[in-house]
Design a protein around this nucleic acid. Structure first.
Lengths: 195, 195
DNA sequence: CCGATTCTGGACTGATCAATCCATATTACA
DNA sequence: TGTAATATGGATTGATCAGTCCAGAATCGG
């Protein structure tokens, strides 16, 4: 079916490399030069395969989001309970304080902050991703309510928003403080409201 | 004493105008063209008066921070109690959901997110400003403890970090959601941990 | 092996970036 | 009024930006 010269790079690997660049540098600050170097492809190939920088970002963002959701789902399954999953997630994230990983933050929260209410596909995708995180949190909250760890009378949507807010705050904190003790204490206080 | 032609613009007003631009567009994305237009001065005047874009940002950031701290201090004095001040601050901020003001965010949290652990004076100033917010929160916490509204045994530094985390999360949330009810509910849950 | 098809390296484009520079304007002081 | 000092407008610089283009390379079906 397909005729002509086949592409000489793995689109999967290229998208992942681009994702790393957007993650570390942000949407605006990631130059096509940075992206090309990381993806190890030529300029022509990038524009041939993705169209433009914005489309590449959309792909990278979806990749990140899908990876994240799968990873969280697995972690959730492995956890002894839905509430334990949430608590572990926040405490482990807080424990990253001072590490290189903490400085990177999360591509979704980074992008939500950078692109905010801007117009355009990139900003929309960032909002969509944030909504996806809230939706996942809501599922977990409902599960915790079924398991009797969280009062079933409480509004699961509001609780999910609370978790998204907490993770966003934690991520921002991790970006500029090295104080692990204070960060972990803050995360612990945050979780107290769930019980 | 001073000889030669006097400057034809108000440095105060110019710095404030620059502050608005950095606030709305972020550090990297604020071009000198944007700044010049808003400040209503010529390129020469900018470089004469501030040296470069980074120094201008430092001035703008200090201005923003000083304004904010003064405003918060006044608001704190006017509040019936330290705890009421904190609660009012968070609830009023949450109530901004969907407004243009909410989309702007806070220059300090915006910059902390954008500049993160980057090197350079701009990033350092952003971290300093975040620390200043935490320091102010800590003062208020201590006051609330004296007033008997918060258990005096609790670590005021950790509580202050908790508040900074909460405000950072709230600001991120406000940037990408229009859902005021969920945002306000999340803020209310957040405050519950203080009591 | 040939022609059609697709991919790729890298030169190129025009826009924009932060910053510099210089001629001119405007003031203070003598 | 003249001179030193400082400010200003705007042209200019060289780097970098996202994106285009084209010549050549690679692979296909026949």
């Amino acid at each position: 079916m397909t005729r002509g010269r086949p592409i000489a790079f793995s689109p999967d690997q290229a998208t992942s490399a681009a994702m790393q660049v957007f993650w570390a540098r942000g949407y605006d600050s990631a130059s096509t030069r940075d992206l090309l170097d990381a993806m190890q492809i030529s300029r022509s190939s990038l524009y041939q395969a993705y169209g433009n920088k914005e489309q590449l970002f959309l792909e990278a963002m979806r990749r990140y989001r899908d990876n994240l959701l799968v990873r969280l789902a697995k972690r959730s399954e492995a956890a002894p309970s839905a509430l334990a999953f949430i608590e572990g997630l926040f405490l482990d994230t807080a424990a990253e304080a001072g590490s290189e990983r903490a400085a990177l933050g999360c591509l979704i929260f980074n992008s939500a902050g950078e692109l905010g209410q801007r117009e355009g596909l990139a900003a929309e995708e960032a909002r969509r991703s944030l909504d996806a995180i809230t939706a996942l949190f809501q599922q977990v909250i409902v599960a915790a309510q079924r398991q009797g760890d969280i009062d079933a009378q409480r509004d699961s949507k509001a609780l999910a928003t609370y978790l998204t807010m907490g993770m966003a705050g934690l991520r921002t904190l991790l970006k500029s403080t090295q104080d692990r003790a204070a960060t972990q204490a803050a995360a612990t206080m945050f979780l107290a409201s769930l019980r």
